[in-house]
């Protein structure tokens, strides 16, 4: 067992990841990230800019990873995955809101 100290960064506006890094994290290629942007699963700050200049935050990473898993595990198209992710985000938002107001059933 040995102890290592490592550099940590929080994926955020001040330390975003680029399209290549997002693709690599998802086990995919940049072409797939371009599709994610087209389907609105992740937000490219300016779609007019070439993919090399796109920058992504944690929310994008989470949505991209989940889209990849839905594609792989359920054979979903990206447009259905986009819908599932939007519905799930809304479900989680409402559930958090209920919980915040002390009204949640504990799930």
């Amino acid at each position: 067992m040995h102890h290592v100290s490592v550099t940590t960064t929080v994926v955020s506006a001040s330390a975003p990841i680029d399209a290549g890094e997002l693709a690599h994290a998802c086990g995919a290629d940049i072409g797939w990230i371009v599709q994610l942007v087209e389907f609105g699963i992740v937000q490219a700050p300016a779609t007019a800019a070439p993919p090399e200049q796109w920058r992504f935050h944690s929310t994008d990473l989470q949505r991209a990873l989940d889209a990849r898993r839905l594609e792989r595990d359920f054979g979903m198209d990206l447009d259905s995955a986009a819908l599932v992710l939007d519905l799930r985000a809304e479900l989680r938002r409402l559930r958090d809101l209920l919980r915040a107001h002390g009204l949640h059933d504990g799930r």
Binding site: H3, V4, S5, V6, T8, V10, Q62
Partner: peptide, 18 residues
């Protein structure tokens, strides 16, 4: 491997530490 991970102040749920 045991890693010492520094978690900076202000991380929110759903954020990723790289």
């Amino acid at each position: 491997r045991t890693l010492q991970v520094k978690i900076p102040p202000g991380v929110h749920p759903g954020q990723y530490i790289r």
